[in-house]
Amino acid sequence: MNLADEVVALLTDPFMQRALLAALLVGAAAPVVGTYLVQRRLSLLGDGIGHVALTGVALGWLVGAAMGLAPNEALAIPGAVVAAVVGSVLIEVVRRRGRTSGDLALALMFYGGIAGGVLLIGIAGGSSGSLMSYLFGSISTVTTSDLVITVVLCAVILAVGVGLRSALFAVSHDEEFAVAAGLPVWLLNMAVAVLAALTVTVSMRVVGLLLVSALMIVPVAVAQQLTHAFRRTMAVAAVVGVVVCVAGLTITYWNNVSPGATIVVLAIAVYVLAVAARPLLARRAPARDPHPDIPDDVVLTTAPAAAGGGKECAP
């Protein structure tokens, strides 16, 4: 079989079609939300939400089992969505109360999320092994109904994340000014929290909860090496996200390796390349003295003091 046949086979495989579409959407959506998280210095928030989402998965499983639903995990994803939204809203509330306790709240989410998930899945009659596909992703098993959820949620994330970009930027950049400008700051902060939660749950199928944050943050880190504008950072990050997700998934079509891990390793490889390429890009920029000669306030000659004599005071 030559390469063209291989590609045709890949593109006509319904499993692969669904997986590719999911990877494409998640690859674009995750870095868009990640840009806001990095701007707010909350790069680890995605991880915290991911851990809480695990409890949600187990809780959904438990409820599904209790209701006697056909596949026990039918409610796993809705459970994850609910838990992730509740968790990220809680973090946002704690963050607003005082900055120091935000860090502690994140830590509590990490531990409580994992422990709760493992505990509940046991009660539901599963084993911690049942959680593996959520922890590390299972994109090749994406069903049509999974795909519908993914498409809808990604559309919402992209519409809000890109459409309200200016307002979300304003709030993340300078909250005090945003309040004085009359923006609905509380609502916009909550929007970022909910977007982060939704992103975590849609990315869960592609890279797994443990690696979700990587998909949100690493493309932003790549983009920062290449640009210093906020909008362009977001755009470049989304492109990087799509490329690594689709490329990583394609690799796993021929090689039996974990898609989630492949995608994240690819993203980090791109980051290393970008760091290496940065000096080359920088050299092309015209040299400019960032500190041109400007007059200062310091009087160096000992001129007779104006009135009252003596000290010069700096402004």
Partner: peptide, 23 residues
């Protein structure tokens, strides 16, 4: 500013927003 750099143009543009205009 925050963890993502932004240009002077982007920062100034955020001044165009107000309660009835989020874009």
């Amino acid at each position: 500013g925050g963890g993502v750099p932004s240009t002077a143009e982007e920062v100034v543009a955020s001044g165009l927003l107000h309660p009835r205009r989020l874009r």
